[in-house]
Nucleic acid binder design. Structure first.
Length: 572
RNA sequence: GCCGACGUAGCUCAGGGGUAGAGCAGCUCACUCGUAAUGAGCAGGUCGCGAGUUCGACUCUCGCCGUCGGCUCCA
């Protein structure tokens, strides 16, 4: 974000805090930074704000802006500032101050309101014109769920009306693309409270989309030397104790007991894949071994985090576990990154990468192994000249990882693919291979997903394409429509032919006007509308209208079928 | 899990202490029609679930479930 935009937004958040203090003097202020989409400020106010309060606060902000109060910076001794905020009962500011090491701190004052702040700020409140308060939310003090929940107000600010308007239009666009809304409109999936929160029910259109993706994935994995394996849905609890999941991941797992034996429903697919590896003695020549499974897992995610398809409790990963020698690690990770690049190009996603390192607590394996693994990950990305961010302490409990964040058609980021390095599970399960010197050695394990979870990926795809899936992914590729009863038989024959050619086609011979049929198909975002009236039938051709308005008049059915089949292969 | 808002017909939503309403969708009939909504009629609801207050609750109170916006967490 540009520096002056940060200053503008940060200043607007101070303006909001001042307005809040004027209207609700008993409120205590916490922090109010600029963020990518605007700004927020956290307040401690026990009754909480209402939507109406938001309107009042915004009005007061405009009034204060009109007063054009100068914003003055002042350096004071830390002790002096502490005394001041203590007197005012601003306990959050006191807590912040106590954590600051410097002798002097800067204060920013605009008539009647002083905030502890590094700054910088605009010169006066009169410069703040184009802003809007957006929403209310709860937020833990310092982001820690053990702390008090404060009330956060989100708003946004821009240098001019034009860009504010643009941003508000962007919010509208985001709403239009919302996969939950499109999922309903396009009859892709549903989530029923009777069935359970976070459990997805695929309807025919969504199920066929999923089937296409699965089919695509199987082919892509076979091409790259992966082998298919399939593991059970439930495994004995002892297995999860051995793997460390019971210790580190139990609160996210579902359990069941049958005939006095405890089972855990799998939250990850690795254990079965490890059992395949362990089933016989492996030679150094066998490695790398790449086991792939479209593995369905269950994780008890906290109720508040569930979100359409993007965060669910049962989902299917395009999961693989690769068993390999240390010396193969670098090359294999390069291959996986190339795999991700190939696949994301097909869906037209750009992406960014992040490396997550060892957590402070809740990890297995030695610190030495962690350091080794982290180094390999960094080396690969450095060698490939790929930029990345470091996410300290954000690794999985069994190893560090590279996370890949997709950037969709309107610039939003989504986490899907991940490559996780694991020295710990091979140790726990005592995996080995026989090396060229005849000695037993420990393999390394990579956990990786390309699309991530099919549910999440489908959700992202829906928003990425705004429901207008490319032809190869479209649940319904073409819809046939007649103009009068006279063409019903003609279209039925064409329908049979297209179905036979593997095209996903629908037949609409209802006694309705063409305009209505076109409209309904447009709403459903079907790529091709095939129209046959008296004229087409007599000439033994069809007319095709595309969802972007383009038309193909009087073409041969054979040519049309060929066109769709080519698009299926080209994957555009 | 936490903070806040919300839950009325398949969908989108209005209403309000005296047992509910619109538009779209659905069904029936008429119309046989050329590129984004033909017309008329009919039918459709334990007002999320459970308890409490009340002569009476869909409306008020409490609890639960779920959804939405966030926080924390994550594929």
């Amino acid at each position: 974000m540009k520096e002056d935009l940060v200053i503008l937004r940060h200043s607007t958040s101070h303006l909001m805090a001042q307005a809040v203090k004027e209207l609700f003097p008993e409120v205590k202020v916490a922090i109010g930074p600029a963020i990518d989409t605007g700004f927020y400020y956290d307040f401690d106010y026990d009754p909480g704000f209402t939507e109406e309060d938001l309107v009042k606060i915004e009005e007061r902000m405009r009034e204060i802006a009109k007063r054009d109060l100068p914003i003055v910076r002042r350096m004071v001794k830390k002790e002096e500032a502490l005394e001041m905020f203590r007197q005012a009962g601003e306990r959050f500011k006191v807590e912040l101050l106590e954590a600051i090491d410097d002798d002097e701190v800067s204060l920013y004052t605009q008539e009647g309101f002083t905030d502890l702040c590094r700054g910088p700020h605009v010169a006066s409140t009169g410069q703040l014109k184009t802003f809007k308060l957006l929403s209310l939310a709860g937020a833990y003090w310092r982001g820690d769920e053990k702390n008090k929940m404060l009330t956060r107000i989100y708003g946004t600010a821009f240098p001019d009306e034009e860009s504010l308007k643009e941003y508000l239009q962007f919010i509208e666009e985001v709403k239009k693309r919302d996969h939950r809304r499109l999922g309903k409109e396009l009859e892709l999936f549903s989530i029923s409270d009777e069935v359970g929160a976070g459990l997805v029910i695929y309807h025919p259109n969504g199920a066929v989309l999923r089937y296409i993706l699965e089919d695509f994935e199987r082919k892509e994995h076979l091409k790259r030397g992966y082998q298919f394996v399939v593991g059970p849905q439930i495994l004995k609890v002892d297995m999860w104790k051995k793997s460390g999941h019971y210790e580190n991941y139990r609160e996210n797992m579902y359990f069941t007991k049958v005939d006095d034996v405890d089972y855990g429903i799998k939250p990850m697919n690795c254990v079965s894949h490890i059992m395949v590896y362990k089933s016989k003695i492996r030679s150094y020549r066998d490695l790398p071994l790449r086991y792939f499974e479209l593995g369905t897992v269950c994780r008890h995610e906290k109720s508040g985090v569930l979100h359409g398809l993007l965060r669910v409790r049962e989902f299917t990963q395009d999961d693989a576990h690769i068993f390999l020698r240390q010396d193969q690690l670098h090359e294999e990770i390069v291959k996986i990154i190339e795999f991700v690049q190939d696949v994301m190009k097909i869906f037209n996603f750009e992406f960014e990468m992040e490396i997550s390192t060892r957590p402070e607590e809740k990890f297995i394996g030695s610190i030495e192994d962690w350091d080794k693994a982290e180094k390999v990950l960094k080396d690969v990305l450095d060698d490939q000249g790929l930029p990345y961010d470091i996410n300290e302490g954000d690794g999985a409990f069994y190893g560090p990882k590279i996370d890949i964040k997709l950037k969709d058609a309107i610039g939003r980021k989504w986490q899907c693919a991940t490559i996780q390095c694991d020295f710990a599970l091979p140790e726990r399960f005592d995996l080995h291979y026989v090396d060229s010197d005849g000695k037993r050695k420990r393999p390394v394990m990579l956990h990786r997903v390309i699309l991530g979870a099919l549910e999440r990926f489908i959700g992202v795809l829906i928003e990425h394409y705004g429901g207008r899936f490319p032809v190869w992914l479209a649940p319904i590729q073409a819809i046939l429509m007649n103009i009068t009863d006279g063409q019903e038989e003609y279209l039925k024959a064409i329908y049979a032919r297209m179905i036979d050619e593997g095209i996903r086609v629908e037949l609409d011979t209802r006694n309705e006007k063409l305009g209505l049929k076109i409209r309904e198909s447009m709403v459903r975002k079907i790529p091709y509308m095939v129209i046959a009236g008296k004229k087409e039938m007599e000439a033994n051709v069809i007319s095709v209208r595309m969802r972007d308005g383009e038309e193909l008049k009087n073409i041969d059915v054979k040519d049309f079928i060929k066109r769709i089949q080519e698009e299926n292969l080209a994957r555009r």
